[in-house]
Amino acid sequence: MISVQSKDFDFSVEYQQLRQRSLQSGAIVMFVGLVRDFSDDSKVSSMTLEHYPGMTENVLNGIVQQAKERWPLDAVRVIHRVGELHASDQIVLVGVSSAHRIAAYEASQFIMDILKTEAPFWKKESTENIQGEAGERWVDAKASDSKQAADWQ
């Protein structure tokens, strides 16, 4: 199950719901990504996440499907937030259940690694430099993220 939403999510509620969908499982791995407040040399006061409605959901469902083909998973939950977010806000959740921990660990990492290079989200940071001047900039994609995703090929 995937969700793209502006509202925050409750980790414990998501965990309990995933657990209810995973009564035969022996392992649940939950990953949460948070907004960091520093990038390069300036302080990030907030960020705005843009996405491509419709395509985002297609891509996320496709990634979950690929994960289910590679590992014996019982249930998968993906939430990605869009809109304005602030430092330390929750931005993404991936939850995976399986009979054994290795599949759950690996599948959750796979989903995040592919999401970062394939799901059509873009971050725009609102920054403040040491002189206190405000600015905006689109975040550049990282080569390290592409390498991380390519390692699953």
Binding site: K116, T117, E118, A119, P120, F121, W122, A141
Partner: peptide, 9 residues
């Protein structure tokens, strides 16, 4: 659609 490289997650 034309898109720059994605930066979510």
């Amino acid at each position: 659609a034309f898109m720059p490289p994605v930066t979510g997650g």
